[in-house]
Design a protein around this nucleic acid. Structure first.
Lengths: 160, 160
DNA sequence: CCTCATAATTTGTATCTACAATTATTGCCT
DNA sequence: AGGCAATAATTGTAGATACAAATTATGAGG
């Protein structure tokens, strides 16, 4: 039975959740920030997710999908679909690893060129984020991510 | 022409981006946090996005889609699809507004009950986030979201 | 009153994301 | 060697997200 509308919330749950929910806030910031990078990178036809995968692969030189997933806390199926697109565009290639279950991924020349083209656009997005969030806030958000990223890297060796 | 693999990154771009990118970090934290809430809420068949919309609607008592979008910085088309699901489950209903272009949305009794059931699960997720990020970090992330949320609310009156 | 810019939503399309289940390999253990 | 759990990746499915374009209803001017 529907309640009468226009009644500002009789339940405790919505008050407590709306005032404290980390998920709502993290996701809100994520949407806002992502939008800035998507807009900046659109001229290259590169998405934020794709850029991040390309960047990490470039830094690793060569890496298995599993390793990238571990560092970025990405589900393997998600990475799989993103790699499809990056490989279709010729930005990333693979070669069979010694273990025939896995492939080793690396960035092509075209991929490296695309990253170079992306750099100035990415810098613009970084500035916009600092303007939108305030520099201090942006830096503190970055610090949180740094910690998780470091955890992702360390998971490679120290298998807790 | 593909480069020889195993070469640890000759380009400046991937170094600069990987060490400073806000987007990579914000999205990483978002994935991690979202996963915690999705897992916690799964028994209710409620997603994180749905919960947040339900909560806000409940707090507003009654609201147009446009108003919700403004506060949450959500694209109208995104909200439209999420409302489809919430309405299909009978958690939210609508009635025509005075302006026949728009509808006023409100939470049904069933929706309020679902929120009440979600509360303890949500509390568990909150704790998990504090454990995963560290309480101080979680609070600082929350502060960032609070600011954007406040901006969303204030946009309602002061149309800058 | 008609026209047209505007506002509120929805639809079409594409990407990102993850869970569950499947496929292909590996490597251990008897 | 043979069987079988574990590992790497893909596929099926579904929700979240946004941009562009279409739809519907208002409202302001001529």
């Amino acid at each position: 039975m529907p309640r009468h509308p226009t009644r500002p919330d009789e339940s405790r749950a919505s008050i407590e959740i709306s005032e404290a929910c980390y998920a709502a806030r993290v996701r809100l910031v994520g949407r806002m920030v992502t939008r800035i990078y998507e807009t900046a990178l659109r001229p290259l036809g590169l998405t934020t997710a794709q850029m991040n995968i390309l960047v990490l692969t470039s830094r690793l030189g060569e890496a298995s999908a599993a390793r990238i997933c571990g560092i970025l806390w990405l589900d393997p199926s998600t990475l799989s679909r993103n790699l499809e697109r990056l490989q279709a565009r010729g930005l990333i290639t693979q070669r069979p690893g010694t273990d025939r279950r896995s492939r080793l991924l690396w960035v092509t020349r075209k991929g490296a060129d695309t990253l170079a083209e992306a750099l100035p656009l990415w810098r613009g997005a970084q500035s916009e984020v600092e303007k939108a969030l305030g520099r201090a806030t942006a830096v503190s958000v970055k610090a949180v991510g740094d910690r998780l990223l470091a955890e992702g890297f360390s998971r490679e060796k120290t298998d807790d």
